[in-house]
Amino acid sequence: MKKLWFIFILIMIVGCKTDTKMNTENGDTNQINEEEKPFVETCTYETLKPLLNKSDDKTYVINFWATWCKPCVEELPAFEKLHKLYAGKNVTVILVSLDFPNQIESRLIPFMIENNLKSKVIAMVDTDHNSWIPKVDESWSGAIPATLIYNKNKRTFYEQSLTYKQLEQEVTNFLETK
C-alpha cells in the first residue's frame, strides 16, 4: 500500500515536472526541481510524541504552524534564522505543520519550495485535536502559532508569536540550563 502511494506521488511529481517542462525553455532546470522537492513526513500524535520527549543533550524548538496561518508565516523567518545560527550549537528546530491533510501536496510542499525552508518540517495529520492537544501541553488552547522549547532539564510552552530576539533569548536560557 505504501509503495502504491510512493508511486502515486512519483507520478504526481513527474506530472508536475512535465508541466513545467512545457513552460520552460531550459529542460535541465527540471532535474534540479525534482532533487530539491522537499520530503514531508506525516505523523499522528503517537509518532510525534517521541520527538517531544527526547532526553539527549539537544535543545528542541518545536513550532506548531500552518501555511494558512498569517502570524505563523510571519514568524517563520525567525525559526529559520534560529535553525541556521544554532543548528551547530545543539539546537534542533522542527516545524510541525497543521495544514489540512489533503493540502500537503497542494499547499504545504509548494510553500516550502517557494520559501526555501531549511528546518525539518513534519505534517501532523491527526485530526482528532482534542485527543492530543492537551498532551503536547496542558495549557495549550489550540491557537497557533504555538511553540514548545525543551531539553532534558527544562520545558516551556508558548501560545504566542515569537520574534527572533525573543526566540534567541529563550533558547539561550535553555542552553544555560543544560
Binding site: C69, P71, H129, N130, G142, A143, I144
Partner: peptide, 10 residues
Amino acid sequence: NTKAIGCTIK
C-alpha cells in the same frame, strides 16, 4: 471542555 486547533484571534 474540549480543545481544537484554530486561528489566533487577530
